[in-house]
Design a binder for these strands. Structure first.
Lengths: 165, 165
DNA sequence: GCTGAAAGTGCGTACTG
DNA sequence: CAGTACGCACTTTCAGC
């Protein structure tokens, strides 16, 4: 059993780290100096914390969200891919991950099933992609749900100051 | 029927814009000067383009990807939420979007169904969340798929130089 | 739409407490 | 770990093409 004080809790993140993460989450291009002002610390101290968050794997990366429609990718879909991998293998998953239209590949608790998120131009492109996926050896069948519209789409996580561990 | 030349194609994005987007997509904190060097233009010209991409809605934002486990959010799940909204309404969708554990809310082609992506700490949290969702008036039932592991998870889109429109 | 110059600001290092 | 100081690099604006 470990004990934590009010500023140093789970995973070694203290309140300042959480403030930094909250600021950067919604605006990855915020300047270091601006973060420093808002958390009330020196820029050098903030920079050191950010570097540490990066090397410790807390910050995984900085991504620019591009409007898919601007690139002609107006159709989003989710597809369950039923595969026949050897036990413990994610071979099919890795093959799926190589396709640029496939943005996410999740191994699910269903029997050897992957849930993938894809973005393509139109239903014709989707058809082509599904045929390509279907032609992968270990893939048995697929079941696709087309997205009509997205009400919310973010990677921002709730950063709480829970006293709970 | 419109005509485009080799550097000005769909949506008014030329090759330089696509280079900029490609560079920023994988590293939102890249400096303006570094982009300028890589695309072979003056920093001021690059800055002007970025601003234009922002106001034109091509760039939707800059996000920091945080390791969910570092925040105690080790469980990802996808849930189909079957709702009874009035025709054309996304009332349930907007209510779902307000929950911080819910990262994505997609309206699907299924009968009044939403597909949502959620991140929580553990199965107990998931249970709580599903009860909360179930208590929304217009929500009829839910069906959840738990993610065992994610092989790929990105928002990066394929930026091609297709001659095709 | 791009360049280049100029002014302001921020960054990253070194060093101190 | 945090703060100060400093030189260099970067950002941003603007005039001119």
């Amino acid at each position: 059993m470990e004990f934590y004080n009010s500023t140093m809790r789970k995973n070694g993140l203290d309140d300042t780290d959480r403030q930094i993460l909250t600021l950067m989450q919604g605006n990855a291009r915020i300047s270091n100096a601006e973060i420093a002002r808002q958390v009330g610390k020196a820029p050098s101290a903030v920079l050191e914390r950010i570097r540490k968050l990066e090397v410790n794997g807390v910050i995984l990366g900085y991504e620019t969200r591009i409007n898919p429609k601007a690139l002609g990718l107006g159709l989003t879909a989710f597809t369950y891919v039923h595969a026949e991998d050897a036990v413990g293998s994610t071979r099919s998953g890795r093959e799926l991950a190589e396709l640029p239209e496939v943005l996410e590949v999740h191994h699910t608790a269903g029997q050897d099933a992957y849930l993938i998120k894809v973005r393509v131009g139109d239903t014709e492109d989707l058809g082509k992609l599904l045929r390509k996926i279907g032609s992968i050896d270990s893939v048995r069948d697929t079941r696709t749900t087309i997205v009509l519209g997205s009400v919310k789409e973010t990677i921002e996580l709730a950063i709480t100051n829970d006293t709970q561990d």
